[in-house]
Design a protein around this nucleic acid. Structure first.
Length: 1113
RNA sequence: AGUCUCGUAGCUCAGUUGGUUAGAGCACUACACUGAUAAUGUAGGGGUCGGCGGUUCAAGUCCGCCCGAGACUACCA
């Protein structure tokens, strides 16, 4: 063994485990040595592995759930770097959007209405800009503290001109491809406030309120045509449809039925005009309205009498036409397609009639199904030649609608005293008089109200800009197939279904703080221009100056800001010299985040090749919460598919929520939110990180329990720390140096070979899991190895090797083995718990070479020995059972026993067992292990049917056959063992049972103490002979002396002299085993003193002994 | 309301293409070990596998319905 230059160095003693302290030490080491930067520089020429950081919004404090997603992201960045990839990790901030606006309004004590009056848009936006990165420092601190390696120095920020410029470029691409259009959509709208409301605003508490409205079931008279006559002959038929908003009836253009719902034609009487009529209604709802009879009579009944004339399937009704109920206006577009029955998926039979009054101008579902069926909305031309609905933006009916003209649709909208009868009531009366109302009643239902004015919200068609995502629906679906979703079901289910039911992306937001829509239009709306860059804007402004619309070009000013209000001041000139104004909308903030792959690099103005040559796009991996499925995941996917027909990300983990330990959502209000800083300060980031990914698969919700973090700290990190301390203690005593020449693996003993085999199996396992983006099973495998295999078995059984005997090859091999295991465990763990693994790695290697700059360990297949792993498993099983017997018999392990007997069925197992026989003996303190053929007569055997094998063979008769096999007697089993087959009589049939179909198991051994688990059985000879007793005494004596040594503070290596005085029997035992004892307790001499000695009294197996120990100088 | 996830011991989680004694850790109790020692080992109790129904010789596992928790989307005549 050659001496090494390092061999006078020592492995550092790490003291008590204090993870948070260690982490701070490592953090400053990383910072000083620029380890993160180096880990990227090292891979400069390597293949890139692309990661996108989904930008958080820094206007709120980070929570513990952010630790979750950031841990997942960090794990893969580090792992891929170790595997030789170049992983750039650019941070980013999401800075626009409603939450920012709301927070600023709260802070300033203003509402949206005050913008432009009490506060200018400029001041408002400045306030937003200041507020949005309020907690950036806190976020950066958390990012750093949890060890999330992310480039925080050059993050992308969505409000910068550069970022916005890329968005404009992308929007222009969409515009030119014809994917950007202006259209109507039905949105919640508050006429009282004169503004559209977002779903977010509508979900404010208290917005949905129970109100009592006049509801009407109206009668729609079917038009006579071929289809109608075919179905119903020449009978006059009314379709019944219910509404709680009668004011929408003049705007009705269709009736919607459910294709799968069954309907009935009922003969009955209109209760208001007492006229016999035939009505159409869902079959399920008949009992709700009718007393079904055979013949109408004048007798009084609780409900209306009705005769079912015929039943019709919903699908047959589609296409039927009807006469307009309130013919006050005609739809401008394709009026010939109006007033027909169409089908819709939303129709139910839980209320109403199963036929839904459909007014596409005032209902989102209505608009959707009408559009699908080609039915026009009720829009008419006004004097300005614009198409408008029958109700204006103040919530008032337009002119020319008879008695309805200029009346508010809801009485709440009147600023002065409202009329006695609301429009709804007036309409009900009108219909009653005409014999077109089947039922009118007050109805209580929940209806949304504006959170600012407290007045009802209308669903109203508003103009918006849309991205025509439906045009590429098939591509979106096809590209989604290429994405590896974790979990798979999120991709197929939630995301897949979402794509199947895709609607166009509503891009418009009527707000102030966000990316302005770069579209300028002439006043007549006939010409529009989409601007795709600042330079293009500047050129257009120059043209505008020429045309005399503008005086100065603000783009030349270095501080020019692309936000409102400045952008609104720009007027452009059309080709034929008309003024063009910017469309006042901002775009959906989700477009900001979906554009980050390009905008973070200011593509295509800079870094063109990063995108075009697929260097930084698409992402190999992203991870966010599952709540982003229809948010960021979708917008990334949509933009990349629309513009590049590519996926934006190849692999994605959609992680679940972090709940409190009781499974409730964390919230500041409830006070159950866990503070990430405090938690990390107490337990350490490594423990939190490990706990989070180890506890449950990331896509399940995590019930975050500090007890679990504590357990991780104690069990995993504590064990690892102890294992190292053990290594360090003895390695330093012997002057071991890991850099010295390695002893060939083949020349190491069984235990060493075994743990190395497991180590390499573990490496392989972790790699497979990680390739599969499965972090949970990776950590579980590592944890099992560290705790069960390395610490509980390898160290425990090898302990003696480390502190007994010479510093010879066997010992060196053991040190090398343990060192290698620890070193590679550090590498395996480093992605998950980057701090402690680095700390330990540097201690093990005795220098300052970070584990994060290493390569991931390779699995050495030739070291893996499955037979060895199997036999050690056998040793563990049998040892455990023997210890179980000792326990029951109350024989302590220190008392040697004579013999273990193990019955075995096959040769292979027998061979394997013989190889580990020594380990079993040592572990159980027995003199002999006898592995014997299980057919020996002393074994009592039973036959166990193998259901899996027998199942397909005997099928239905399984129960019977299994019963028969279990009833086999000794001779049946012997015969079966000999012949390898048997048969069972089943009626006339004889069923052949082969050796695979039955397992013969030893159940008991006569005259021995036995124990069995599964198919393993072991017997123990518990007879203690005189010799065994003596040896037991000797070992007990050693134990007592060792305790004494420790008690009196002797060093592990101190030599001693012993004098003792005791009874004859124990003295005999000690003298007989004097060599063994001397060796164990490092005694130079052990002598019996027949004179009373000054000593300590000990007790050995119930016998008193006086002992005097002197340290040998 | 729809879509998705989850429901197994007091707690946190495993449980292979369905195969007959449903596992592990924590906690609890008892014991053992005592040169890894503020560590460790062994044993024990603890389960109508959310409920009901179905398919099957056989269901924790497959199917249907329901209940509970959560998320997202939508908001209805």
């Amino acid at each position: 063994m050659g001496s090494s230059p390092n061999n006078n160095k020592k492995y550092p003693s790490l003291g008590k485990l204090n993870l948070p302290e260690i982490e701070k030490e490592i953090l400053s080491f990383w910072k000083e040595q620029k380890i993160f930067e180096k880990s990227i520089e090292n891979r400069q020429n390597a293949e890139p592995w692309v990661f996108f950081e989904g930008p958080p919004s820094a206007n709120g404090m980070p929570g513990i759930h952010h630790v979750m997603s950031r841990t997942i992201k960090d794990i893969f960045g580090r792992y891929m770097t170790l595997n030789g990839k170049l992983v750039e990790r650019k941070g980013g901030w999401d800075t626009h959007g409603l939450p920012v606006e709301l927070q600023v309004e709260k802070k300033l004590g203003i509402t949206k209405e005050d913008i432009g009056t009490k506060i200018s848009i400029e001041e408002y936006n400045n306030a937003c800009r200041e507020d949005v990165l309020k907690y950036k420092d806190v976020w950066d601190e958390l990012t750093e503290r949890i060890g999330f390696w992310l480039d925080l120095d050059k993050p992308y920020i969505t409000y910068t001109n550069e970022y916005i410029e890329t968005i404009w470029y992308l929007l222009k691409q969409l515009f030119e491809k014809g994917y950007l259009y202006k259209g109507y959509t039905i949105q919640p709208y508050s006429p009282a406030a004169g503004t559209g409301l977002s779903s977010h605003e509508l979900n404010q508490p208290g917005c949905y309120r129970d109100v009592k409205d006049t509801s009407v079931i109206a009668q729609f008279l079917l038009t006579e045509n071929q289809q109608k006559i075919k179905l119903f002959g020449d009978k006059k038929v009314f379709a019944l449809a219910w509404t709680t908003t009668p004011w929408t009836l003049p705007s009705n253009t269709a009736l919607t039925i459910g294709g799968k719902i069954n309907y009935a034609l009922v003969k009955t009487v209109n209760p208001y005009v007492n006229e016999k009529i035939n009505v159409l209604i869902a079959e399920d709802l008949l009992p709700k309205y009718f007393e079904l009879v055979d013949k109408l009579s004048s007798e009084k009944t609780k409900k209306l009498q009705g005769i079912v004339l015929q039943k019709i399937k919903g699908i047959e009704l589609i296409g039927l036409q009807y006469q307009q109920l309130m013919p006050f206006a005609t739809p401008y577009e394709t009026p010939e397609n109006a007033f027909q029955i169409i089908s819709g998926d939303f129709v139910t039979t839980s209320d109403g009639t199963g036929i839904v009054h459909t007014a596409p101008t005032f209902g989102a579902d209505d608009a959707r199904v009408a559009k699908l069926a080609g039915v026009p909305p009720m829009l008419v031309k006004n004097q300005q030649d614009e198409l408008i609905p029958l109700v204006d933006k103040k919530g008032k009916f337009i002119e020319g609608l008879g008695f309805l003209s200029n009346k508010y649709v809801k009485n709440e909208f009147y600023t002065q005293t409202p009329p006695e009868k609301s429009v709804d009531v007036e309409i009900a009366i009108y219909l009653k008089e005409k014999g077109l109302a089947f039922k009118v009643e007050k109805y209580v239902h929940s209806y949304p109200h504006c959170w600012r004015t407290d007045k009802p919200v209308l669903y109203y068609p508003l103009e918006s800009w849309f991205v025509k995502t439906t045009a590429v629906k098939q591509k979106l679906i096809a590209n989604n197939q290429k994405i590896n979703w974790k979990p798979k079901t999120t991709g197929e289910g939630r995301f897949g279904h979402w794509l199947q039911n895709l609607v166009d992306w509503n891009l418009s937001r009527s707000r102030y703080w966000g990316t302005p829509l770069p579209i300028w239009r002439t006043e007549d709306g006939k010409q529009s221009k989409c601007i795709g860059s600042i330079s293009e804007l500047s050129k257009e402004i120059d043209k505008s100056i020429e045309a005399g619309f503008m005086v100065k070009n603000p783009c030349t000013n270095a501080n020019f800001d692309l936000h409102r209000p400045f952008i609104d001041h720009i007027t452009l000139a059309s080709e034929d010299g008309l003024r063009m104004h910017r469309e006042p909308d901002l775009i959906d903030v989700w477009f900001d985040s979906g554009a980050m792959p390009y905008a973070q690099w200011h593509y295509p103005f800079d870094n063109k090749e990063k995108i075009q040559k697929n260097i930084a796009f698409p992402a190999d991996f992203i991870a966010e919460g599952v709540d982003q499925t229809r948010g960021w995941f979708f917008t990334l996917h949509a933009i990349s598919t629309l513009l590049f027909d590519q996926v934006a990300f190849k692999n994605v983990i959609a992680n679940g929520l972090v709940l409190d330990k009781n499974g409730n959502k964390m919230s500041k209000r409830l006070g159950n939110a866990v503070d990430p800083f405090q938690t990390i300060e107490k337990y350490g980031a490594d423990a939190v990180r490990w706990y989070m990914v180890n506890n449950s698969p990331p896509w399940d919700n995590l019930k975050f329990d500090l007890k679990g973090v504590e357990e991780t700290l104690r069990k995993l990190f504590g064990t690892l720390h102890n294992t190292y301390s053990f290594f360090e203690l003895y390695a330093n005593i012997d002057g071991f140096d890991h850099s010295a020449k390695h002893i060939s693996k083949k020349n190491r003993d069984t235990l060493d070979q075994w743990i190395l085999s497991l180590l390499n199996t573990l490496i392989e396992e972790v790699m497979v899991h990680m390739e599969n983006y499965d972090i949970t099973n990776s950590t579980r495998a590592i944890q099992k190895f560290v705790i069960d295999d390395l610490s509980n078995w390898y160290i425990r059984l090898s302990r003696r090797k480390f502190w007994k005997g010479e510093f010879g090859d066997e010992k060196i091999a053991a040190f090398q083995t343990l060192h290698e295991c620890l070193e590679k465990v550090c590498m395996l763990m480093s992605s998950f718990s980057p701090f402690y693994s680095d700390y330990l790695y540097m201690a093990l290697t005795r220098n300052k070479n970070s584990v994060h700059l290493q390569n991931f360990p390779k699995c050495q297949l030739d070291i893996i020995n499955k037979d060895l792993e199997t036999k050690m498993a056998l040793a563990q099983i049998y040892s455990s059972m023997v210890l179980g017997i000792r326990k029951k018999e109350k024989i302590k392990v220190r008392q040697p026993l004579a013999k273990i007997m193990i019955p075995v069925a096959d040769k292979k197992t027998k061979e394997l067992l013989l190889d580990v026989e020594g380990i079993i003996r040592a572990e159980t303190n027995t003199k002999e292990v006898q592995v014997v053929d299980f057919q020996e007569a002393i074994f009592e055997q039973i036959a166990k049917p193998n259901f899996k094998k027998l199942g397909p063979k005997v099928g239905k008769n399984m129960k019977f056959v299994a019963q028969k096999i279990q009833e086999w007697e000794r001779e049946d089993i012997n015969k079966f063992n000999k012949e390898g087959k048997a048969s069972v009589q089943l009626g006339d049939e004889e069923i052949e049972i082969s050796s695979d179909d039955v397992e013969i198991v030893v159940k008991d051994i006569h005259g021995w103490k036995t124990e069995s688990t599964g198919s393993h059985t072991v017997a123990l000879d518990i007879h203690i002979t005189e010799n065994l007793r003596k040896e037991g005494d000797a070992r007990e004596f050693v134990n007592k002396i060792q305790n004494l040594r420790k008690e009196i503070g002797l060093d592990v290596t101190d030599k001693i002299d012993i004098k003792f005085d005791t009874n004859e029997s124990l003295a005999l035992a000690i003298n007989e085993f004097i060599d063994y004892i001397s060796l164990e307790v490092l005694a130079n001499s052990i002598s019996q003193s027949f004179h009373k000695i000054e000593s300590i009294e000990l007790e050995v197996n119930g016998q008193s002994i006086n002992v005097d120990i002197q340290k040998n100088k």
